[in-house]
């Protein structure tokens, strides 16, 4: 691995963006979460009640030297069939779960299982970051309980990570995204020879 290679990777990687899909059921907090991840100067004051996303939106943010291009896809039941359109180009997936919505944890699990079993996703080493969102809400489940309810321990073909978050205050987001950036760097940048 020569110096030139490293240089080209540095230059190339600096400009290239990593596509990350932000998925999750409706009202789980995807848009609010992405809003909180935006750099502070580009951020409009956070709306307290975000309108439901229709179709998809694109957001950009950087973390740990990796520049992300995030696709925020609508989570409404009738739009969930469109998720698979984005699978092919995704380098990473952020799955947002409302940890206070006990009723729909099974629905989130079902959607996650469908996602993992899709031909465009199955067998690919796509890092999966799960946000147990709304952890400040009353009756919210702990991240490990959410992980158990989603059956994350059964995922073997992808690195995954779960962390509690609160999209309104931004708590926990940085940790999760830092993990994601590390995973992407490790996968795409060659390990330095020791």
């Amino acid at each position: 691995m020569g110096l030139l290679d490293k240089l080209s990777v540095w230059l190339g990687r600096g400009r290239a963006e990593v596509t990350v899909l932000v998925l999750g059921l409706d009202n789980s907090g995807k848009s609010t979460l992405l809003h909180a991840l935006r750099p502070a100067d580009a951020r409009a004051p956070a709306p307290h009640h975000a309108a439901p996303t229709v179709g998809q939106q694109q957001e950009h943010f950087t973390s740990g030297g990796v520049s992300f291009s995030a696709w925020d896809v609508s989570g409404a039941p009738r739009h969930r069939a469109l998720w698979e359109r984005h699978y092919r180009r995704a380098h990473a997936v952020i799955f947002v779960v409302d940890s206070a919505d006990h009723l729909r944890l099974v629905v989130a699990r079902e959607e996650l299982e469908l996602l993992l079993a899709h031909p465009d996703m199955f067998g690919r080493r796509v890092p999966l970051l799960v946000f147990a969102n709304k952890h400040d809400a009353p009756h919210a489940l702990a991240p490990m309980q959410v992980a158990a309810a989603l059956g994350l321990e059964r995922i073997t073909d992808k690195p995954w990570h779960i962390c509690a978050s609160c999209a309104l205050s931004g708590a926990g987001l940085a940790d999760g995204v830092a993990w994601l950036a590390r995973q992407i760097r490790d996968a795409h940048l060659p390990h330095p020879h020791t």
């Binding site: 409706d26 969930r80 009723l103 729909r104």
Partner: peptide, 24 residues
């Protein structure tokens, strides 16, 4: 029920509550 449109709510003779969500 909640935000889920298709929920089958069953109360059994023994007094239990069962919730079944229709898959998408």
């Amino acid at each position: 029920l909640g935000q889920e449109e298709h929920v089958l709510i069953i109360i059994t003779g023994a007094g239990n509550l069962m919730l079944k969500i229709l898959k998408r």
